[in-house]
Amino acid sequence: MMKEKRELVSVPGKWDISFNYAAGKTVSHFLAQIRDNGRILGMKCAKCHRVMVPPRSFCERCFVPAEDWVELGDEGVVEAFTIVHDVFEGSPPPPYAIAYVKLDGADTALANFVDGLDLSDISEATQRLKIGARVKVEFASRREGRITDFKYRIIG
């Protein structure tokens, strides 16, 4: 019997589902402070005194509730970074840099975009964007209460 070459059919699909992710009391306050006052707050554990950002309503290490807000500095130090040169759907057009920065007064690092660097030459960019580099927080003039209301900028 002759083997017939049969067509393979695909059915297109797309997930398009709405959510309104509740930020909760703790993160809502954090985001509102960024929006209204250009301030970044951390949450301090009363037991171990660790200052956590993103803020959370409990310290997982001590396993106790946390409710002491502290204001963090508007400068910090790079703890990890990457320079993205590839296109990812849903992400900004490349190139862009992302860094985890430990803001002054915080014990944990917070991820955000890094602005103001020429990323076309990676070896040059990584002379400035490196672990240990100091950065300053730069807020957008129009803020919406999102983490993307600010970016990091390398100082010096």
């Binding site: 992710y21 993103p54 993205v84 990812f88 900004p92 992302i98 991820a111 975009f113 983490i147 993307t148």
Partner: peptide, 12 residues
């Protein structure tokens, strides 16, 4: 609210 908004993925 945090990492998703700054374009994290398995590669970076």
């Amino acid at each position: 609210r945090f990492e998703r908004a700054v374009a994290l993925n398995a590669i970076n």
